[in-house]
Computed example of a mutant assay.
Amino acid sequence: MEKSKVYFTNMHTTMNENLPQKLSRLVKTAGIQGIDFDKKFVAIKIHFGEPGNLAYLRPNYAKTIADIVKDLGGKPFLTDCNTLYVGGRKNALDHLESAYVNGYSPFSTGCHILIGDGLKGTDEALVPVEGGEYVKEAKIGQAVMDADIIISLNHFKGHELTGFGGAIKNIGMGCGSRAGKMEMHSSGKPQVSQEQCVGCGMCTKICAHSAITITDRKASINHDKCVGCGRCIGVCPTGAIVPAWDESNDILNKKMAEYTWAVLHERPHFHISLVIDVSPFCDCHAENDIPIVPNVGMFASFDPIALDVACADAVNGQPVMAGSLLEKSLKNHKDHFTDVNPTTDWKVGIDHAVKMGLGSKDYELITI
């Protein structure tokens, strides 16, 4: 089997070429122009960053990709789906405001922003997962599934549950609706924090299975009736309804691979990862830490697995950043991600993605 091609360029610039221009040259050399964009809706999946976090990708990079898509006749939009946890991106209005605060807007990026799973994270498409071991029907943001083409623009960094966040996490976890995220993170069903519940009854109205009742102005969920759809999480105004957060990291990684399959199956897709500001944890944190390694560069490929493996190999080939959490936790595992987050094994998700037919671990690195 032929190795997948992964294209790479470092972060050095010249008087004749800045970083956005270099990114443009990278993706064109990698063959993005081979996709038929003419009059097609193109979802550029990106993480806008939780407010307070400063490691997320600058909007300048998104503009570069959006401009290329428009030049090729496509109709690009930036997208992400709402978060499962309480924060600055729990619903579409807060999510858009967070994106604006972090510099993303139609004026800075040259295209519009659509929150993939709607106002409350309940606008979803149910996508059958052929061959899914854990997921039979993925819950994907409707706007993502309405797109004709998927481009993932990834900030490659560490992650406390999945080892690292790259193309597969950006697509699989990022494109899941709130119910989809709950399915990946939880093996059980949601529960109610009685201290936070105000008894408003919004959850009872959204539940299609009469699983929620209000007693003494407090909600409770009958798990015998609950089907785990997660819609009650999306409508709760106080964040009182929460998932169990009890899935093992290995199964989480496998479910994420199956969700990635649901998003990409039978659609053109292209993937870009920037291995810069490699923070030890996800951009979902409202803070970031010292990068664990120096900046590496920019990578692009049609194969999300090859891209993730190439980026992981590149990070593991870097020296440890002085003063970082990696330096403090270094245990000579020969894997920087395991050293920072020892309960994770990112290779499990990669192997499962290969099993799902998403691509290959074998790659040819082409430096431009």
Score class of each variant (00 low, 15 high):
Arg25Gln: 14
Gly131Ile: 00
Asn154Met: 01
Lys40His: 05
Leu114Lys: 13
Ile366Gln: 08
Pro76Thr: 11
Tyr363Pro: 00
Lys90Tyr: 15
Ala92Gly: 03
Ile233Met: 14
Val198Asn: 14
Phe281Tyr: 15
Leu84Lys: 12
Phe107Ile: 14
Glu137Gln: 09
Ile251Tyr: 03
Gly323Lys: 09
Ser360Thr: 15
Cys236Leu: 12
Lys355Gly: 01
Gly31Val: 00
Arg231Phe: 13
Ala262Val: 02
Glu17Tyr: 07
Asp289Ser: 07
Trp346Thr: 03
Gly121Thr: 02
Asp345Arg: 11
His185Lys: 10
Gly323Asp: 06
Glu247Ala: 15
Val348Tyr: 07
Glu17Met: 14
Ala138Asp: 05
Ser108Gln: 09
Glu133Asn: 01
Ala262His: 07
Asn16Asp: 14
Ile115His: 01
Lys355Leu: 04
Gly165Ile: 00
Leu252Gln: 11
Met298Asp: 07
Gly116Leu: 11
Lys218Cys: 12
Ile276Cys: 14
His265Leu: 08
Arg217Asn: 15
Cys81Gly: 13
Arg178Gly: 04
Ile168Val: 05
Asp339Met: 06
Thr83Ala: 11
Cys175His: 01
Cys81Ser: 15
Ser279Thr: 13
Lys3Ala: 15
Asp80Asn: 13
Gly103Leu: 14
Asp335Trp: 05
Ser273Gln: 10
Ala244Met: 15
Leu114Thr: 11
His159Glu: 09
Leu161Asp: 02
Ile206Cys: 11
Asp224Met: 14
Gly132Arg: 03
Phe270Ile: 08
Thr13Asn: 08
Gly239Asn: 10
Gly317Pro: 08
Asp277Ser: 13
Gly317Asp: 02
Asp289Glu: 15
Val227Pro: 00
Gly230Ala: 13
Ile206Leu: 10
Leu78Pro: 04
Tyr363Arg: 06
Ile212Cys: 05
Phe37His: 00
Gly230Phe: 11
Ala179Val: 01
Val144Pro: 09
Gly158Asp: 02
Asp216Glu: 15
Phe156Glu: 04
Lys139Cys: 05
Ala66Arg: 13
Asn253Val: 04
Thr215Arg: 15
Asp345Pro: 07
Cys232Tyr: 10
Asp339Val: 04
Thr162Phe: 01
Gly158Gln: 04
